[in-house]
Amino acid sequence: MKGHVVVAPDKFRGSLTSPEVAAHVAIGLRSAGSGQVPVVRLPVADGGDGTVDAVVASGFTRVEMEVTGPVGELVTAAYAIRDEPGGRVAVIELAEASGLRRLPEGGAPAPLTATSRGTGELMAHAVRHGATRIVLGLGGSACTDGGAGMAQALGVRLLDAAGNDLPPGGIALRDLHTIDVSRRLRGFEVVVASDVDNPLLGPYGAAAVYGPQKGATPGDVAVLEAGLARLAAVAEPGGVAYAMRPGAGAAGGTGFGALAFLEAEIRPGIGYLLDLVDFERHVAGARLVITGEGSIDGQTLRGKAPVGVAAVAARHDVPAVAVCGRRSVSDEELRAAGIEAAYALTDIEPDVRRCMAEAGPLLERLAGRIAAAFTEAGPSR
C-alpha cells in the first residue's frame, strides 16, 4: 500500500479544535487496521476561530498574555510565532482577543461599544518581541468598530472635535474628527487572512450583514453604519478606495482598519495559511487527504478550509474526502468542489446533541469507514 494519508481538518465549532479533530481521525484510521499507512496530521484554519491552534500544531510557538477583551475586561489570549528565513512571523487571530467567545460568561453582547483593542495589543506585543510580519486572521469578532480599537492599541489616535481620544466601540466613531498616525508602531508588515469578501459599508457591509450576529438591533445597525461611514470619510478624505475593497468589512470592519492604518494586504484566508504551514509539501505523494469542518454547507463551497485543502490535493492528483458534523450539500456539489465524499457524524448518530457531545468517538468510527473505502480497498491515483 503506497502513499501516506494527510489529515487536514478545520475545527468542529462547539465540539473540537482542529488538532483534536485530526487526532481522533488518526486514531480511527489506526483502529481500523490502517496502522501500516503513515498518517500526517496537519490541522488547518481559514483565519477565523482556531487559527492559532492550527499553526501551533504545525510548529509555531504559542505566546499567551492578558489583553483587553471586547467589553473592556482582561482576558488571556494567545498568538503564535515562528522564526523564518525572512524574519519572525506572528499569527494573530482576532477571535482570540476580540471574539464573541471572549464575552463574559452569561453576559450580553455589546454591539455598539465592543472593541478590537485586544487584537492590537497582541500585535504590539509580537512586534516588540521581534515580529516583522503579522498574519492577522479575521473572523468571529464581537465588535463592529472598523478596527479602531486595534489601531488605537498600536498608537493611532482617533480624536473628536475637542481633541479627546474616542472611547471604545463603533458608536463613538460618529464623533470622529481627526486621525493622528504620527505615533503609530512601525517596522512590520501585515497580511490579513480572511475568507470574507464584504465591503465596509452598504447592504453587504460589516454592520448590515454581521451586526445582527453580534446582537445589533436594526437601530443599532444604522448607528454602526453611520460610525463606519464617518471612519471611512476621515481616514480616506479623497475617496472610498479601501472601504469598498473586498474584505474591508471582515470582522466588524477590522479589515478596513488594517488597510487604512497598517497598509495591509488582504489574502484569501485558507490559501495563505496553507502556504504558511507548507501544506503542499505534505500532500505530494499522498494516497489520500482527509479534510473537514463542523458543518459542510453552502458556505463551505464558497472557499472555506475544506475546499482550499481539496484544491491543493487536486493539483497533486490526490483524492480528498471530508468529515463533518452534518452536511447540507449534494454529492454532485461536493465533487464539483473537489471533495469526493463527505462522512457526517449524523450518518451514524442522528441526534445532533449527541454528535456534539460525543464528536471524538464518532469521528473515530467515521475514520474507520474511510479506511475501508480508501486506504484499504480504494485505488491509489
Rank of each mutant, 00 (worst) to 15 (best):
V5A: 02
V5N: 00
P9F: 11
R13V: 15
G14D: 10
L16G: 06
T17V: 08
S18V: 03
E20N: 08
V21W: 07
R30D: 13
S31H: 15
A32P: 03
G33C: 10
Q36P: 09
Q36F: 15
V37D: 03
V37G: 04
L42F: 10
P43S: 11
G47W: 01
G48W: 09
T51H: 05
D53M: 11
A57H: 04
G59M: 10
F60A: 13
T61E: 15
V63D: 01
P70G: 06
G72F: 00
E73T: 12
A77K: 00
A78M: 10
A78Q: 11
A78L: 10
P85W: 02
I92R: 03
A95G: 05
A97I: 04
S98A: 15
G99F: 04
L100M: 15
L100P: 02
R101K: 13
E105K: 14
G106T: 07
G106I: 07
G107L: 08
P111K: 02
L112S: 00
A114V: 02
A114H: 00
S116T: 15
G118Y: 02
T119R: 01
G120L: 03
E121L: 08
A124D: 08
R128E: 12
R128K: 13
R133E: 12
L136S: 05
C143K: 00
D145S: 05
A148Y: 03
G155N: 01
L159Y: 04
A162T: 14
A162R: 15
G169L: 00
G170Q: 02
I171Q: 12
D175H: 13
L176A: 08
H177K: 10
D180Y: 06
R186V: 14
E189H: 13
V190D: 03
A208L: 08
V209C: 05
P212S: 09
G215F: 00
A216L: 05
P218L: 13
V221G: 03
V223D: 06
E236I: 11
M244H: 13
R245V: 13
P246G: 04
G249L: 09
A250V: 12
A251Y: 06
G255M: 02
F256A: 07
A258S: 14
L273V: 13
L274N: 04
V277R: 00
H282S: 15
H282N: 11
I296Q: 06
R302F: 14
V307D: 01
D317L: 13
A322V: 06
R327V: 00
S330P: 06
D331Y: 08
E332F: 09
G338V: 04
G338A: 08
I339D: 00
I339M: 07
A341I: 09
A342Y: 01
Y343G: 05
V352A: 14
V352E: 12
A359K: 07
L363A: 02
E364D: 11
R365Q: 14
G368S: 07
G368T: 04
I370S: 00
P379I: 10
